[in-house]
């Protein structure tokens, strides 16, 4: 951050850290076509998945994205989440002091268990979290069976 200047021993570490990141990213993502500067490569939204008696719930962190910037697709038992976050156009790159957020496209796919009713999947976007509710098929829901012991 250029607006405050004082000597900080962490700066060297930060720069080593940046270089290491660069190295790792370049090595691991050569095929992604990473650009310099405001790198618009790929990013991965953090996802939580849990299950209750009625449904499987997927929650993905997509802060700052609107409905229009997110795509949800189900095909052959595969749930795909896609999207793109763009850098604000009206801000010049040189006016940035710090960029930690990730920009560019993301895509994540999850295979759906056979117990999920694919016709009844619903999605809501609230406070930057995309929540998908994948209801289970009736026969997959746990039923309470009383077994009498003789």
């Amino acid at each position: 951050m250029a607006i405050v200047r004082w000597w900080d021993p962490m700066r060297d570490i930060s720069s080593i850290q940046e270089k290491m990141n660069q190295l790792f990213e370049d090595t691991l993502s050569r095929s992604r076509g990473r650009e310099e500067g405001l790198g618009t490569g790929m990013w991965t939204p953090a996802v939580d998945i849990y299950e209750n008696n009625d449904a499987v719930v997927v929650k993905a962190e997509v802060p700052g994205l609107t409905k229009e910037q997110i795509g949800i697709e189900i095909k052959d038992g595969l749930l795909t989440l896609k999207g793109e976050r763009k850098v604000e156009k009206e801000v010049k790159e040189e006016n940035y002091h710090r960029i930690e957020r990730a920009y560019g496209t993301f895509q994540r796919a999850f295979s759906l268990p056979a117990t999920v009713d694919q016709e009844k999947i619903s999605a809501t976007l609230k406070n930057g979290v995309l929540e998908l509710v994948l209801p289970k098929k009736e026969q997959a829901k746990k039923k309470q069976i009383n077994v009498s012991v003789k």
Binding site: I3, P63, Y96, H97
Partner: peptide
């Protein structure tokens, strides 16, 4: 993210 305009400094924080 932090950027500066002519009149302001803007911080954008991800708190999903």
């Amino acid at each position: 993210d932090i950027y500066e305009t002519g009149t302001e400094i803007v911080l954008q924080v991800e708190v999903p």
